[in-house]
């Protein structure tokens, strides 16, 4: 039995036994290559679920809207390791109870979806630990190195050009499981912290503040980057922050549901290189 059939069967069992009220997975999209989020509430519809190498989106963001988990019932969701890390962070930040999330875990290897054993986020701790040891994506690092080699003014010019494309559609925010604020700081207007205008300054303010808010929290799922309709390489900013968190504090976002937020905790051995 292929992974798709196996997971459809599991989804059907979860739904018909009443263990979960909803399965969030992937379905056929409007073209052959596209996959889209689908929501299955009854075992008779599990044939809508698709699982293959094109299923890249991190679906954990669909768990955070207000009300979905407030009835205490469980929801099953198809997640790659990045999505499982997101669940851990959401749990650590008290946004959900990981016991309510049944994970249908998989990873993509050589363009194919492969099953990952486990049901609860805590079942994947060893896997996430091995990912941490393997380090951040070398592919991303290559792009990041190109930026690192620039002078500060060249790099500023690069981001200025990129951010001047931004239209403040907030697709990056909306697709991100970490952007669960009921009211985002850009939408706060008393006082107005951030310019709402989409001029280059306002775009800088938005994108930099988002990068700061994601420092030590981003799992590099690439959702913001893929969603950006004007092709800003947002992955590079978030990668830079993730690298900083890892190199400086040994912090790999989403290791466990008990992990402390890196910027909200202090350890005596924390380096203080920038404090005189």
């Amino acid at each position: 039995m292929g992974i798709q059939e196996q997971y459809r069967k599991e989804a059907a069992e979860l739904l018909s036994s009443g263990e979960v009220k909803l399965v969030i997975g992937y379905g056929e999209g409007s073209t052959a290559e596209r996959r889209r989020p689908v929501f299955v509430r009854s075992a008779e519809y599990v044939s809508r679920l698709v699982l293959d190498g094109s299923c890249v989106a991190n679906l954990s963001s669909y768990l955070v809207p207000e009300g979905l988990l407030s009835d205490g019932k469980k929801v099953a969701v198809f997640l790659k390791p990045d999505g499982i890390r997101s669940i851990n962070i959401l749990a650590a930040e008290s946004q959900l109870d990981p016991e309510q999330v049944v994970i249908l875990g998989f990873d993509i290897e050589g363009g194919q979806a492969a099953p990952l054993p486990g049901r609860k986020a805590s079942d994947f701790t060893a896997l996430i630990g091995s990912l941490k040891s393997a380090g951040l994506s070398p592919e991303l690092q290559k792009d990041a190195d190109r930026l690192e080699q620039m002078s500060a003014s060249e790099r500023f010019g690069y981001w200025k050009e990129q951010f001047s494309k931004c239209i403040k559609c907030y697709a990056c925010r909306q697709v991100c499981p970490m952007c669960y604020c009921r009211r985002c700081i850009v939408d706060v207007n008393q006082p107005q912290w951030i310019n709402t205008s989409s001029h280059t300054l306002g775009n800088f303010e938005w994108n930099i503040i988002r990068a700061f808010h994601l420092a030590g929290r981003c799992v590099s799922c690439g959702g913001c980057d893929r969603s950006c309709p004007v092709n800003i390489p947002l992955r590079l900013i978030n990668h830079r922050m993730a690298k900083e968190a890892l190199d400086t504090f040994g912090h790999y976002a989403g290791e466990s549901a008990e992990q402390q937020p890196v910027l909200a905790t202090f350890r005596q051995e924390d380096p203080e290189t920038f404090i005189l």
């Binding site: 929501f39 403040k168 559609c169």
Partner: peptide, 13 residues
Amino acid sequence: SQRCIGCGSCTYL
């Protein structure tokens, strides 16, 4: 609209 994430990409483009 179940999967709509509420971004403004469709309207701005």
